[in-house]
Computed example of a mutant assay.
Amino acid sequence: MTLTVLFAAGDAEFAEYLAPLTEAFTQYGLQIDLVTKAMPEAVEYIIYSPASTLRDFTPYTRCKAVLNLWAGVEKIVGNPTLTQPLARMVDPALTRGMVEYVCGHVLRYHLGMDAHITAAPGTWVPQEPPLAPERVVGILGMGELGRACATALAGLGFAVEGWSSQPKQVADVTCHHGREGFDTLLQRAEILVTLLPLTPQTENILDARAFALMPKGAHIINPGRGALIEDDALLAALDDGQIAAATLDVFRIEPLPADHLFWGHPHVTITPHIAATTRAKSASLVVANNIARVESGAELLYQVDTARGY
């Protein structure tokens, strides 16, 4: 039986994904009619990204699942017309990319590399950095990406502490939860990595109060969601030295507007949303596997809890 799969993720993405998806469907023994346009009542699966113009899911009465190509689902999960099961993207390659980004920037701050890179000629001021076990790295968000980054950093010897809204257990990581645990982690984290999903509860979670709780001279790395941070509060904390520096990969508006104060700030590093990009070849295998599972009667992997928003 041939399944009709609507690719609702933009024309550029379709050109990128056509060959990898075709190969992945074949690998999983699926006969797929992959289309960018179809009568809604004929569509059995939708491959989706926020670049799509699809907003009304009501007509897709036969659709068994919507498969998101991004790890984040905040731009679709609140859609009231979405009654079909929604799967977020959990891809080993995406996770690997995030781990490499986070470990790279944690090590950069830990070793004080910025001072060495920007030192004036003739500057020779040796400073011995602490060893990794003497440095507390905090991870906000202990989902798939947070756990992977925490485990990798613990493997490098860092004293890693994580926070999530619900209790979690991760080997070699001190885990906190709830409001009290949130404050405890902030008070200890010399380098803080934000990997929370964006929900009404997490928006602006890093505000003036949060920055004031952190050790003076702490560092922020945000490859999670731009709106987790209150921009003005971060700028104020950077200007008064409470926060020494921040590396930001995500923003409320992307691309980041040219007149934003983050640009040109001496203590802000901007990267263009590159920490965890979805790679077509590996993501196609995740999508094909999930469709094959549903067709065989197994449960959909990585299904989003719409009530929680992730």
Rank of each mutant, 00 (worst) to 15 (best):
N289G: 15
D56K: 11
F158G: 05
R135F: 13
R293C: 11
L131N: 09
Q27N: 10
A280Y: 05
L300C: 08
A233Y: 07
L131K: 13
T269K: 12
G226A: 07
T151K: 10
I191H: 02
D231I: 03
K37H: 13
A292P: 00
H273Y: 09
A218T: 06
T271I: 08
G29D: 04
Q31R: 11
K64D: 03
A258Q: 11
G155M: 10
P92N: 04
K75T: 11
A38K: 03
L206V: 02
E128N: 13
A71C: 06
T36Y: 07
V90I: 13
K75C: 06
P59R: 02
K281Y: 09
A15V: 12
F57Y: 14
L235Y: 03
D239K: 13
K37Q: 15
E13C: 11
V125F: 12
P272H: 10
T26K: 12
L30R: 03
S165N: 13
V170G: 06
Q303H: 05
P20L: 04
G138P: 09
V160W: 03
A19S: 14
R62A: 15
A246C: 05
L198V: 03
T151C: 08
A275V: 02
D231S: 14
Y310E: 08
V250Y: 03
A245Y: 08
T199E: 09
P92K: 05
T58S: 15
I274C: 14
A120E: 15
T58A: 13
A154P: 08
Q27K: 12
S296W: 05
K75W: 10
V90M: 01
N290T: 01
T269D: 13
D259F: 10
T22Q: 11
L248I: 04
I76H: 08
S52G: 10
D172G: 10
A227K: 13
A298E: 15
A119G: 04
P92R: 06
D183W: 07
Q303W: 05
V268I: 12
M142H: 07
A148M: 10
I270G: 02
G141N: 01
V102L: 07
G297I: 05
